[in-house]
Amino acid sequence: MVLVNTETVPGRQILEVKGLVQGNTVRAKHVGRDIMAGLKNIVGGELKGYTELLTESRREATARMMAQAQELGANAIVNVRFATSSISAGAAELYAYGTAVVLSE
């Protein structure tokens, strides 16, 4: 499956638009990571644990979106967008959406 965040796929034509597809995940981090993050808030720097967590969440949300597109019989998703929000102190939501389309070969 082809994923792009441009409106068209270079060199290929959109034959059919299947509609909006989306996927989301809400993940909480475990206590160990929270404690580490608390310490990091004293010295600054990257919170590697959270970075990894959000990378996993992004993959998961993308996979769910792709599964929806597959169900619709699409072979590509164009104009993919990501959005993040922290819904409570310990959890972050990741949301991916795009338009499922059928591309020419």
Binding site: K40, N41, G44, E46, Y50, T51, T84
Partner: peptide
């Protein structure tokens, strides 16, 4: 790609 950066005290 994503990154999370912490504030220092």
């Amino acid at each position: 790609a994503n990154v999370v950066i912490a504030l220092d005290y």
